[in-house]
Design a protein around this nucleic acid. Structure first.
Length: 263
DNA sequence: AGTACCACCTGACGGC
DNA sequence: TGCCGTCAGGTGGTAC
């Protein structure tokens, strides 16, 4: 599930549950989710310390540890967090279990094990190493035009490429393109200036709306594509059958009536 | 340099 | 019921 709005929700969840509590135990249940730190290293550096604050950048969540470094969480396709007391409530795909001195636990649950946890001394250096583009919510239009200079891939590929812009994935790229009225395979360098501006505005608007709705599809506006984004789905505006195609290896849904190539 | 494709994992679902 | 292919909200490596 995790794209920017989901990770933002995880950030708020951590803020509300897991800060300022002494970490008593760290149990790595699957080594596949280890990024740049070993299980031993995570245990050694976290145990006895407290989480202080959090920061989100793109789809990454950084948690400040009182010892002066950052614990990194990335959620892959299926990652999520759960804070609970009774160990019987441990979620089914718990891959990393952090236990606090207050008797509560925080589980990093990741069914497909495509997510990664790690450590970094500085958030900025991690972002540089990963070569992440600017976070969508911090992006301004001038910068967007600069970073798109020389690009000629499809607009959907461009939105989803974390090296270009950080935070947008498959689902929200479809939503942004639907709201902007752009066909997913439109080449980014063929977009008219006015439409690029519209696309820029929708990036922010769609993600902010999803954050405000706590990513609950039920709470999203009724004219959003997201709730209809499945086989047999219809356009929420004109009830046309949605089209389903592959764009750079991912499934794209769009309304053939509202989303045109030459705009 | 920029883009496309496959592999990495697990589990759910539909068809035979 | 069992088996098989397909698909899933991500990313890294590699091939063009």
């Amino acid at each position: 599930m995790p794209e920017l709005p989901d990770v933002e929700a995880f950030k708020r969840y951590m803020d509300a549950t897991s800060l300022h509590k002494t970490i008593e135990g760290v149990e790595v249940k699957s080594s596949l989710i280890l990024g740049n730190a070993s299980a031993r290293e995570l245990q050694a550096r976290l145990t006895g310390h407290k989480f202080q604050s959090t920061r989100r950048y793109g789809k990454y969540l950084f948690v400040r540890v009182d010892d002066g470094f950052w614990f990194i969480l990335h959620f892959g396709m299926s990652g999520r967090l759960k804070y609970f007391k009774n160990i019987d409530k441990d979620p089914p795909h718990d891959r990393l279990l952090i236990s606090f001195a207050n008797g509560f636990h925080l589980a990093y649950d990741c069914q497909r094990k495509l997510g990664k946890v790690g450590i970094t001394e500085e958030v900025e250096s991690f972002i540089r190493e990963k070569d992440l583009g600017p976070d969508v919510l911090e992006l301004d239009f001038t910068t967007l035009k600069e970073i798109l200079e020389g690009r000629r891939g499809t607009v959907k590929y461009t939105l989803m490429n974390q090296h270009i812009i950080a935070g947008i994935g498959n689902i929200y790229s479809d939503e942004i393109l639907f709201q902007a009225g752009v066909h997913p395979t439109t080449k980014i360098n063929k977009l008219k200036k006015k439409m690029l501006k519209k696309l820029f505005e929708e990036m922010k608007k769609v993600l902010q709306t999803a954050i405000d709705c706590q990513t609950d599809p039920e709470k999203l506006p009724e004219y959003y594509l997201l709730q209809h984004r499945s086989k047999g789905g219809r356009c929420p505006r004109c009830h046309s059958d949605l089209e389903r195609i592959k764009v750079s290896g991912r499934t794209a849904y769009y309304c053939p009536k509202h989303q045109k190539k030459n705009c």
